[in-house]
Design a protein around this nucleic acid. Sequence first.
DNA 1: CCCACCCTTGCACATATTTTCATGCGGCTT
DNA 2: AAGCCGCATGAAAATATGTGCAAGGGTGGG
Lengths: 333, 333
Amino acid sequence: MIDKEFLATIDVDEAVPGKTRDALRAAHLYYMQDLTMDAIAQELHTSRSSVSRLLSHARASGLVEISIHSPLDLPSRIEHEILERFAVQAHVIPVPDHASDVDRLDRVALSAARILGRFIDSNLTVGLAWGSTMGAMSRHLVPKATHNSEIVQLNGAGNLRTTGIVYASELLRRFGDAFGARVQQFPVPAFFDDPATKQAFWRERSTQRLLDLQGRLDLALFGIGSPFAEVPSHVYQGGYLERPDYEGLSRDGAVGDVATVFYRADGSTDGISLNERATGPDFAVLRRAPRRICVVSGRAKLASLRGALAAGLITDLIVDEGTARVLVETQAG
Amino acid sequence: MIDKEFLATIDVDEAVPGKTRDALRAAHLYYMQDLTMDAIAQELHTSRSSVSRLLSHARASGLVEISIHSPLDLPSRIEHEILERFAVQAHVIPVPDHASDVDRLDRVALSAARILGRFIDSNLTVGLAWGSTMGAMSRHLVPKATHNSEIVQLNGAGNLRTTGIVYASELLRRFGDAFGARVQQFPVPAFFDDPATKQAFWRERSTQRLLDLQGRLDLALFGIGSPFAEVPSHVYQGGYLERPDYEGLSRDGAVGDVATVFYRADGSTDGISLNERATGPDFAVLRRAPRRICVVSGRAKLASLRGALAAGLITDLIVDEGTARVLVETQAG
DNA sequence: CCCACCCTTGCACATATTTTCATGCGGCTT
DNA sequence: AAGCCGCATGAAAATATGTGCAAGGGTGGG
């Protein structure tokens, strides 16, 4: 058994780089020298198909990076306006207005995944919320080698029906794999039933260690929950909350949540009773992270987004064009 | 009349950016969201063909940048060895060994042109030699917007038969256009007939101004001339030198030239009489440029390349794989 | 105002690329 | 040792992309 594992190790250390080497060479020939895949196939003594696959691999694994620069004299009007109005660096993703919400989310997530590489680097502690947006992103991450980075789960994932741990851990793992980072799971439900349980749990040393990490994030990455939107966020579908919870939120004036912590339109959180049972970090804690990236898609989340902006949670916003447009067009300043 | 010009102005200010805007959007959709050109055509209310052209435009004009990263754990062995042995950062261009010299040169020049963008920036004074290598590069430059940059011709271009100015100025212009830089021509022959003429010319104030610029380069870009190689460099084909000149070079032990200045295998230039009549900068002057990029292809130039390395002329080397391999394999280190 | 010209566009065809599918090669299990 | 994955490969089919060409629209000159 040990022998076999040893052999497997040899495999990843030698055979795979052979493939990487080929992919790298193919990429040079294709993207730098404009050869056709046919010609490359000859040079590499293989078939067109294999070259096509090699190039896909090169793109998917981040060997090839494609970036798009706006000419400096043509800055996106919308991005500029968001920067002015909210002091937030926006990345507006073009999506046609008639696209379905699912489509829209996918396309924003895909673009966001590709943009993310710019933010991730070595020696970073990255906080990660989770939800449908993060899930969609996790499927499209472009790997980037980093050292000594750490992915920290921001909020619990258990719900009434399942522990949710499988899903959340899968998501964390994908991020971890893509960036070669350690992952720190947070094995608690999304919401406790009893605030007292949470408080007790929070006193545990293992929890303390995690909370400590959350307080020292370099980067936070999250979507936004919108409890009263027509298309409820993932968190609201899976039996995490029950009718009384919703009624409470409604009564308290909540318009959205970030990592299970709810806020009002003005960004305030005090007195929203569900937060006593939430597992995500206080906004005061979250705001300690110097860079906080929020990925949002769909006009339904507009009110929630406005609240998050008011709360000062966001430093970088990745958002679909339609939503961005409404955000700046309405004179809500 | 004025009205028409006014309208035309509006056109360039609005219509052309309209195209750029479309190209940018198409690039986002294509490269970030993986839509097919067909789908993009629908979103942009145009035809597939136009999208294809839009994307070509986006690539050619530098809106889209494609770069290739070696994984850090797989650094090119050859590049690393060149760095060790010669303290020169190498960019090795893969080219099959059986490729013709013309092919090889083209492919190196194409890759070099695309790599060049990394080096060019605003507020830079760039010295440019010229020859077949630079000519080939000039046809493939990827534009990059810079401010306040300047391209300075390093050596004269006139020869016995033509003034050569048309060709050299075309080449300079292409570089200037690609980077939005001013160009400083150097309207002299490649070699003077009489050293005294050169000295007289060098005392002219207009020449002084140019020499002054050459002494303050931030970046120098040049190929290498190899007078005794089987495939003579451009400079040797066009009637720039005559038989007695070659005999002199041979007697003086010259193995190559950079911007018309010849050197021996050990990098020395003293006592090579042709240099008295050359128009390129002294190596002492050239070496003041903090970054000096040399583009070479073909094993025939190996001896010349070795000499240039010995002379310490090069900080960054762009070279084809075959030549690079021979360079490090022979124990001349 | 008309005309020649040039640039852009979309169509149809030519190429290039991706995907599917059948096959074969290890490695592992029984 | 036979049998069974799981994965990689190339041929062929299915898509996607690039390009020559003719038509249309706008522009500048007469």
